[in-house]
Each structure stands twice: as structure tokens, then as C-alpha cells.
Simulated scan of single mutants.
Amino acid sequence: MILGIGTDLANIERIEAVLARHGERFRNRVFTAVEQRKAEGRARAVAATYAKRWAAKEACSKALGTGLRMGIAWKDMAVTNLRSGQPVMHVTGWAADRLRAMTPEGHEAVIHVTLTDDHPWAQAFVVIEARPLRGQGDLRG
């Protein structure tokens, strides 16, 4: 069952300007060390990488049903990538608490995230799914 859906569109040039103006202060307030290493390691796409992660955090907060309020911090949501390149959303702190609260008993929450960019835009979609735990009505065995 779908628990929440969120999307966001970020302007890469706007993120680039914020990075130029606020640099490390902005990066450290919004992005985890892992996210920063990923972005800074992409010499030709630093701002686009940050913009996609910004959009993912916004989309995740919307899927959680709160937006960026009610105690959710930017770094409570973080994007990493599998070896295949597939993005994965991790939640901690208040975002993890909210996710647990919205997940029905007998289910586990799975966060799906997809990212894309086409200069000057970066976009993210987040879908939060509740899957039955094995033995909790899961007909797959």
C-alpha cells in the first residue's frame, strides 16, 4: 500500500548560486558528509548533484506528510547510491520517527526515490510503500 508520495523540482542554477554565496555553511546544514563527497566528486556536475539531493529531501518530506516542518531536519533525510547507481533514501531522527508512526502494524516501510536532471532543472519523486511483513498476510510465503 502507498503511504505517501512527494515530488520536487529544483533549479540547478539557484543551488549553484547558494553554494557560491554560502558554501560550506550551506553544505553542512543541508547535506550529510556522504552526500557532500558524492557531489564534490562529480567535477562537472557538482551543483546538479546537490540540486537532485535537495529535491529528494523536499520530496521525501512531502511524502512523509509534513514538508520541512514539525521537527524534520534536512540531514534527517539522506540520499546514497547503490553500486548500480540507483538512489536510496535513508531517514533518521524525526523523519524516521514519522515514518514509523505512519507505517501500519505488521508492515515495513520502503522508500522509493528517483532523481533526474536536465539543466537547469533537477527533479525527484519519492514514494513510501508499506509492505506486509512475512507471516503477516503476505501471500508470497
Rank of each mutant, 00 (worst) to 15 (best):
A96G: 01
G71R: 13
T92Q: 15
R131H: 14
M77D: 04
G41D: 07
N81T: 07
I128H: 13
I5G: 01
N81K: 15
A43F: 07
R37W: 02
M77L: 13
D138A: 13
R44C: 00
A59R: 13
H112N: 08
T49L: 01
L82N: 09
R44T: 03
R83C: 01
N81R: 15
E108F: 14
H112P: 00
Q36K: 13
V34D: 15
D97T: 12
R44K: 14
R131Y: 11
K57Y: 12
A43Q: 14
M89T: 09
L19K: 08
L99S: 07
P104G: 04
A130Y: 07
P87M: 07
I128T: 10
I2K: 04
K57E: 05
I15G: 00
D117F: 09
C60T: 15
K62I: 05
L139I: 02
V113M: 02
W54C: 05
A47D: 10
A109S: 10
G67H: 10
I12N: 06
D8E: 10
K38Y: 15
K57A: 05
L82A: 06
I5P: 07
E24P: 03
V126G: 04
I128R: 14
G85R: 14
L64N: 09
V88K: 14
E108N: 13
A39D: 07
E129N: 09
L82G: 03
A101P: 02
A96R: 15
R37L: 06
G106E: 15
K57G: 00
E129L: 02
V34K: 08
F125Q: 13
I111N: 02
V127G: 05
R100D: 13
E105D: 10
A48W: 00
P120C: 04
R131F: 04
N11T: 09
T92W: 12
L19C: 07
M70H: 15
P104L: 14
A95P: 07
V30R: 00
A33Y: 01
E13Q: 12
G23C: 12
N28H: 11
W54G: 00
S84G: 05
A10G: 00
K52D: 00
N28T: 05
Y50F: 15
C60M: 11
G67N: 10
E108M: 14
V34Q: 15
L133M: 13
R37V: 02
F125D: 01
A56D: 03
W74S: 02
I72M: 09
I12P: 01
Y50T: 07
E108R: 15
H112E: 06
G106R: 08
D8F: 06
R37K: 12
F31D: 04
I5K: 05
C60A: 14
M1R: 12
A20G: 11
G141V: 06
M102S: 05
A124F: 03
D97P: 00
R29Y: 07
E35M: 09
P132E: 11
A48D: 07
G93A: 10
W74I: 08
P132M: 10
G135L: 03
A10K: 03
G135H: 08
H22V: 00
K52E: 12
D76E: 14
L139Q: 09
R44H: 11
A39V: 12
A47H: 09
E35H: 01
D97S: 07
H107V: 03
L115T: 09
R29L: 11
V46H: 03
V91Q: 11
L9V: 14
G65M: 01
G71V: 10
S61P: 03
P132I: 08
V127F: 07
R134Q: 15
